[in-house]
Design a protein around this nucleic acid. Sequence first.
DNA 1: GTTTTTACCGAAAACGTTTTCGATTTGTTT
DNA 2: AAACAAATCGAAAACGTTTTCGGTAAAAAC
Lengths: 340, 340
Amino acid sequence: MKTVTLKQIAEKLNISVTTVSKALKDYPDVSKTTRQRVLDLAQSLDYTPNSFAVSLRMQQSKTIGVIIPDTVHHFFSNVIKGILKEAEKNDYMVILMQSNESFELEKKQIDLLLSKGVDGILVSLSNNTKKFDHLQKVINYGVPLVLFDKISKTLKCSKVFIDDRKAAYDAVTYLINKGHKRIAHFRGDLNPQNSIDRFLGYKQALLDNNISFDPTLVYMCNNNADFDDGYKNAEKLLKDHGNTVDAIFTITDLIAIGIMKYFDDHGIRVPEDIALFGFSNWFMSSVISPGLSTVEQHAFQIGEESAHILFYEIKSKMNDTPIEHQTVVIPTEMIFRESS
Amino acid sequence: MKTVTLKQIAEKLNISVTTVSKALKDYPDVSKTTRQRVLDLAQSLDYTPNSFAVSLRMQQSKTIGVIIPDTVHHFFSNVIKGILKEAEKNDYMVILMQSNESFELEKKQIDLLLSKGVDGILVSLSNNTKKFDHLQKVINYGVPLVLFDKISKTLKCSKVFIDDRKAAYDAVTYLINKGHKRIAHFRGDLNPQNSIDRFLGYKQALLDNNISFDPTLVYMCNNNADFDDGYKNAEKLLKDHGNTVDAIFTITDLIAIGIMKYFDDHGIRVPEDIALFGFSNWFMSSVISPGLSTVEQHAFQIGEESAHILFYEIKSKMNDTPIEHQTVVIPTEMIFRESS
DNA sequence: GTTTTTACCGAAAACGTTTTCGATTTGTTT
DNA sequence: AAACAAATCGAAAACGTTTTCGGTAAAAAC
């Protein structure tokens, strides 16, 4: 089954390719009758323009690229969903790639997207990218770029993210107001920045409430911040501090759930003996017993907003109107459940 | 920053575009010296072929399309991951769309992908597609198509899926062998087929073990098979049957987790009072207390295998070698945890 | 010294569109 | 009837590649 072209329509109708093209695009200089004849025939032959030719001629692909560290993550799944929705609204397609937290791969994928001629790129940085030449290249090429969630402040492009520091500050402040005095923090690795910011928010909340900061109460989860980190560090925490700690703020829900498991295995009650507060509002946190208090990041909205800005920049670029980069921080929200 | 073309290289070197092209593609009829000159200049100018032009000329896009019902689902996230990995290996890009379980959208997206000129399409059907003209169109166009997980047996194309019936049969048989006599089933809606097959597996296992099938023990979860379905039907189950039921097999983990929540709220112990067996091995099932027994679907492998077959068909098509469609069923695996 | 082979190169067509610009026809005005 | 305006169309260039095919020059064979 061969695909039908303008030329074929033109021949069948004994008119030129030019006229067929113009008829289909509602140019004023084609008579009503021929336009209708073209439209009818095109419809009956199920004509669809060859997108390669259109892209080549118009220098645009109607496609954007997105790079994320990992698709299997509740947060990123939701971001993707938001992006897809916005893309659909704008008649755009999205090419998805995942960097697996590899800087090399991310770099290669940027080149691939660039060579593919995407009209814009959305990326959430891998934990291991500390150089940004590849992203600067995108900017230099003049293709719109917006960073989300895992961003670099140094790049001249639009960015959308949350205020990790404030979110952490608020969560810890809430715990303090609930009467907790010795609050531990299970933090993430040094990179990305998010982990540092949440830690800083935690620390600041303590200081602002006249609670001295105790470094022995923060536990590093370098194992990719997963379930086992929580489980094992919970054990260490008990060994180190007995039952003097009355709350834990974790960098992500999964760690809190690891803690819960350890506590459950050892007869420690949440929240009676110790309160827990997570981060990111993983789906499972709403569904387990006890429900986990956490902070909602509005992943879907982040995706939507990022894509929205990207399309704005793409359109601006076409009209040759100067684009002004935006940096929007999506407000977070505390979700209170039984664990605190 | 303008992109560099063959023509520019040719002019700088005072040779023809033809020769430049051939030099870059290792054609034998270009001298060592000019080839090197071309290679060097191309490198220093960071030449990358215009993919629109290549696609137009070669009639292929090095891109595949994939349509799934929902990105925010542990199963599909893993499928995507498998697809992306395989695509990467084959130097292909993937355009992702989600149908949101809408037949209309799925249909439109197929047309979009077709008009985009993708070299192949991967799709997991929406729950609401009962006509397959749009997929038949894909086949008629001659673009390779492979269906996975939610498939239609009537279409002449490759398919990869699991044996839902056998998996359910095995799980229920296991429960029976463990000594359970009255086993309830929380099933899904009538569509898709998976839900029916799991029910049939459940029923067959009972009969094969001389346990009479009791229709009042199967509860329909039509609310999209979610957490609340489990919670509410658990309440109904207790009202209907008191504590005579000693095990429940659910169509998906999430429902089992809803049941757990209800039981937890009402002092019913799992597995002492009643055993639970889920389906799909959602991530959270490994992490909650008690851990949920379930069946692993190997989503990643399904994605990988589907893409693998698709690329095989794409390559075959290029070589004009006849393609024989495959239907592979990925073996499932029972995961035993505390809940049973 | 002539023919044949080999090595190297480029013109041109093709992929399917979009758009500019000039040409032709028709209708309108004096 | 001449002059002009409006309506309608098509030739051609352009987007950047790939590939066929013929041509020229140098090297090899006779």
